[in-house]
Amino acid sequence: MTPAAPRSIDAYLKQLRAALADQDPALIQDAAYDAEEYLRAEIAAHPDKSEADVLELIASTYGAPDEVAAAYRDTEAKVKAALHSPPVRPAVETPSLLRRFFSVYRDPRAYTSVFFMLLALATGIVYFVIAVVGISLSLGLSILVIGIPFFLAFIGMIRVISLGEGRLIEAMTGERMPRRPVHPGPKMGLWASSIAMLKDARTWTTLAYFILMLPLGIVYFVIAVVGLSVGLACTVAPAVGLLEATGLFDAHFTMEPAWLAAALPLGVLCCIGVVTLTTLMHAARAIGRAHARIAKRLLVTPG
């Protein structure tokens, strides 16, 4: 049984969202944005007709919600296949534990995730400052005439930034994120838009994400820097020590404590370094995935 033909933009979008309910929230946001853009343009192009009259003809021009949903579903499957290279084919025999442990170096996502962790401190600080300054100025200016336009500009800005953050996360972790912003909806007065923004759950979850990014960014950055520096130092130091022992090379390098400067401790140190680096790569990949899920919950799903 198909639902009754929608007679308003809201009803159309609701049916479209329902028809895509099993899909990724990021895809739903993209499809809803395209539909809302078309429907609003169509209504603006027919000023003599009411919204209900325009919507009545929509099924034969733009397509009924379930037809449009099917088109997005098909295209998404094709684009996903084209953009994401197939996963590295696992060896026929079950790979040994050791092989699986080191296979992380063949995964580009592990490298991009490490980069994301290093970058997260910078973006975290920027987002935190924007959120805190924006909230406090909005509150402080709310008693003045300029308060409302300022609040609207601030929310508009964090929406654009959160779209950018989504693109960054998709590039770094491969998680599907929106390619369209949230549709601003119909043109309303300043006061009505402010009320709508205040009522929108996504406004608050986006701000929460911006604030959360500072502590998360610090933690990610520390993990990445400590892992990289300890891992690289332990891996490279024994080699430099050995080179110096040959006398070919003088880096003014001394091993402290002195008992370390022997073949066995140096070998152990090198192993510790390699294990630390590899563990960091695994941790980065896991953190990247977990962070993408947090971002999707806060930046995409509500709304």
Binding site: D34, A35, G63, T75, V79
Partner: peptide, 30 residues
């Protein structure tokens, strides 16, 4: 074909590098 099927295909073509796109602010909407 329905106009609604145009948008996802435009995006797919753009992702494949066959189209480029740029965003322009509009006075009448987003």
């Amino acid at each position: 074909f329905k106009e609604g099927t145009v948008y996802p295909v435009l995006r797919a073509l753009s992702a494949a590098g066959l189209l480029t796109s740029r965003i322009v602010p509009s006075y009448s909407g987003p």
